[in-house]
Structure formats: C-alpha cells, structure tokens
Write a protein that binds this DNA or RNA. Sequence first.
DNA 1: GTAACTCGGACTCTATTGGTCGTATATCAA
DNA 2: TTGATATACGACCAATAGAGTCCGAGTTAC
Lengths: 134, 134
Amino acid sequence: MVRLSKRVEYGLIAIRDIASRTGGDLVTAKEISDRYGIPYDLLAKVLQRLSKAGLITSHQGVRGGYALTVDPRQVQVSAIIHAIEGTTPVIAQCLSDGPTSCDVFNVCTIKSPLTKVQANIERAFRTMTLAEIV
Amino acid sequence: MVRLSKRVEYGLIAIRDIASRTGGDLVTAKEISDRYGIPYDLLAKVLQRLSKAGLITSHQGVRGGYALTVDPRQVQVSAIIHAIEGTTPVIAQCLSDGPTSCDVFNVCTIKSPLTKVQANIERAFRTMTLAEIV
DNA sequence: GTAACTCGGACTCTATTGGTCGTATATCAA
DNA sequence: TTGATATACGACCAATAGAGTCCGAGTTAC
Ligand code: SF4
Ligand code: SF4
C-alpha cells in the first residue's frame, strides 16, 4: 500500500547511474543490470520507457547503450516516474480515473482532504530533481 | 501504485461519519454501509480494527453500534491508517521491512532520497487530523 | 556476416487486495 | 426465555496488479 513499484525504483537507480557518468560514453543495460543485480529483462524495458520519453537516448547495435540527454538539475523525479509508469502516482482511484471509476464517488466525503494529501505528494516528487539523487 | 487501500478509504469515510454525529448515539455498521454503499462485511471488519485500536468504542447487541471515543482534533489521519492496516504507508519495502527485505539494498543508491520523500508523506498524514476531514 | 546491442510484445507466477461466508457471541426487549 | 439485532472473527474465494521471464525481432560496428 502506497508503495513505489520496483520498475520505478530500478528506473531511478538506473538513470542515476547513467547521470553519474562523466563524459558521453554509453552505458548498456547489461552493465547496469550486473552492477546492481537487477533482472536484465525488466531493467531493459524500463530503460526503453525512459528512452521513449526522451529522458535518455538509446543507441542500438554493437557498442550501443544509453546516455542522458537532459540536464540532471532540470528533470524532476515525477517526470521519471511518469515516463516509466505512464502515469503519476495517485493516492485514490477517482483522482486519476474520474468520477465513474468509484461507485462511492457521489457520497464520498473524503475526496477533498485526500486531494490535499495528493497535492502534497505530487509536490514532493516534483521538487526533487535527478541532480539531487546523484 | 502508491494507492490507498479501499479499507483505508472506507475507514476514513466511516470514522468521519461517526465523528460528525452530535450527541452520543451509536451508529451501526449497517447504517454506514447503507448510507455510502460500502460492502457491509468489509466495513464491519474495518470498524472492528478501529475499535480494537481504541479510536471508537463498540457496543454489541440490540441497539448497539459504534461511537467515537477521542477528540477529532487530536487524532491524526496517520493513526487511523495505522489502526486499519497495522502499519504506516511506506514508499519502499526496505523502509519498513529492513535491509534484508530487498536484495539490492547494499548497492541501492536511492535509499536516502526516498527516505526524504517518505518523511514528507508521513508528515502529510500526521499533520492532518480527523477534525479536518469532517 | 556475425556479435553485441536495443526493441517490444506475450507470457507466467505470485502477492495483494477486495469482497464473501459462516459461525460465535453479546445485548435488549417483548 | 426466546428471538431479533448487533458486533467479533477467521476462513475463504475472486480479481487485479506486480514482478519477472522468454522469445523473436530490428540495428549497428567491426
Ligand atoms: S471517491 Fe472517495 S472512495 Fe472513491 S476513490 Fe475517490 S476518494 Fe476513494
Ligand atoms: S533498497 Fe533501494 S530498491 Fe530496495 S527497497 Fe530500499 S529503496 Fe527500494
């Protein structure tokens, strides 16, 4: 409950690793997988998502790999999470999927307080940048 | 991901309802279940947890039900959640289950940043009291 | 051409969650 | 005393989401 997915954790570890490399040399998925003991296939897909979102670039083929494209000080953690999960972490279903997603919606008395908590959490992820976790 | 359980939502709705009653009359689980369209059995168990934690008192038998025992301004939302789930919402497994719970622990580079986010979230739940959601 | 990469979907397995059921127990009022 | 109305509690089932695997591609350097 209220737990980050492993995908996100792996993604954060990975992008942090990529960001920490000085110079423009590429890092392969296997390399990261080995260094941290993260399942290769899982990590690979996470990296693909990050690349698709434009946070890192991918280079296929021999001597390929990944590299950071953005300024670590500019990219916020919430953007990384969104790139990986396709959505922002939401505390209650109705906050992301709309009124029809919960059949208690119209009598629900806790929506607005929860919205405040939600805003709080979002801010926490938005104000923290990649540079801060390197 | 990072979602509150239905149990917690139902519990918050229920305790808010109980708290909103003026006078000391009891509220039955069925009553709340009907008013909000919450599954009876599920709600019942949540109320039992709240009662076991001392946040509300239970009275069995005919004309029984539940009543609030604490000052709404004193009880924080985090206490309610803890009563229901038996634990505090934690963003990463290692933060609750210790180093051995994650086999990436010793090479994990994101523990300390996540701890900050965690503190943030905890504060959000701790600073919000029952009185604020009534 | 081939080795070393990324790409992307389909797939399985497992844990968590949401919800149900059955039964026991307490209380009150007729 | 009996029966209706409550909570108490554990076992159970069903649905969903999560973690992890597999495989058959495309790409590029050498
Ligand atoms: S409506 Fe209330 S109960 Fe339903 S998801 Fe939104 S917050 Fe939770
Ligand atoms: S060690 Fe790192 S990866 Fe493992 S649970 Fe804690 S934060 Fe997540």
